[in-house]
Every structure is written in C-alpha cells, then in structure tokens.
C-alpha cells in the first residue's frame, strides 16, 4: 500500500469507499502544502482539484469590495473543491489557508471520466461527496438561524 493510499484511507471522505476506490483515487492524488495566508483557490479560477484536508485550517471567503467576508472555516478532515465536478468547473469562492495546511489533492479533471467509465465506483464516490455536501448544507441552514441572537 502506497503512502498516498494510506493517507487517503485515513481521511474521513474515504470512510464509505472500497479499498479499490481508494487505490484508484491514490493514482490521481498528490500531497500539497500551503503556507499560512496563502490563497489555495481564487473565485472563478478553473476548478480542477478536490482537496482532502490533512492538517491546518482554511477559510472559505467571498470578496465583496472593499470587504472580504469569511463564510466558514474548515479544519483537518474536511473535503472541499466540489466545483471540480460540476459545470462551469470554476471556483465559487476563495479558499485561503488560515494556518499552514497540508492536503491530499485529487486531480478532479482526470477523475471525472473515470467516474463515468466505472459507474459503481462513480456511485460510491458521489455518495461520499453528497454526504459532505449534505453536512455542509445542514450547517449552513443552522448558521442562517442566527442561533444566539438576543
């Protein structure tokens, strides 16, 4: 088992994937490190990668001049970069490293045709992705409640 395979298998995103799915993903994965305050994605930039955070914290931000609005922070264990799988394949917001970040980066552009070609793997992968989206959507709704208002 390669280091990448092992690292992917440890990530919460892979919890429901088969070992052969993880092996396939590891063929398309690499480890990237980003310094604190470094921009990882920029809104409207080409969305090519899925990021599985291993260490550190990132900020999802939106630029509304003159403000930069912090929408949410994500810690190690989070998955981001869904825009890689949906048209128009560009980022919908900025992602910035709030502290030094290490991530497993899966080449989504290479992965997309594999999902089509191997539909059973594609289904399991999309279920894992949907679970992440579902969790984040629920959190966004709760956030909208403004829970602690006086």
């Amino acid at each position: 088992m390669s280091d990448l395979h092992e690292m992917l298998a440890e990530h919460s995103f892979a919890r429901t994937l088969f070992d052969r799915d993880v092996a396939l993903l590891s063929e398309l994965a690499r480890v990237e490190r980003y310094p604190a305050d470094g921009v990882i994605f920029r809104e409207d930039g080409p969305a090519r990668d899925l990021l599985l955070l291993r260490r550190g914290r990132v900020a999802i931000e939106m630029h509304a001049p003159p403000r930069v609005v912090l929408l949410e922070s994500l810690d190690a264990g989070a998955t981001l970069g869904w825009s890689t799988f949906f048209a128009p394949y560009t980022w919908g917001s900025d992602i910035r490293a709030m502290e030094a970040v290490e991530a497993l980066v899966v080449d989504g552009a290479e992965l997309r045709p594999r999902l089509e070609k191997e539909p059973e793997f594609g289904l399991r992968f999309m279920r894992a992705l949907l679970a992440t989206v579902h969790q984040r959507l629920e959190r966004s709704r709760l956030h909208r409640m403004d829970l602690y208002q006086p």
């Binding site: 919460s12 912090l70 709760l142």
Partner: peptide, 23 residues
C-alpha cells in the same frame, strides 16, 4: 471554539458548533 461570524482578523474557527463534533 467556533463562532458564527468572526470579526475582521479573527483567525479561529468560523461555523456552527455542530461542525466541530466530528473532529
């Protein structure tokens, strides 16, 4: 610790408290 909306310059977590349970 997490907050729903950090002040400018906040470097801690931002998000609802349920988001930190699985961590």
């Amino acid at each position: 610790v997490t907050v729903d909306q950090g002040s400018p310059g906040w470097r801690g977590r931002q998000g609802v408290v349920t988001a930190v349970i699985d961590k």
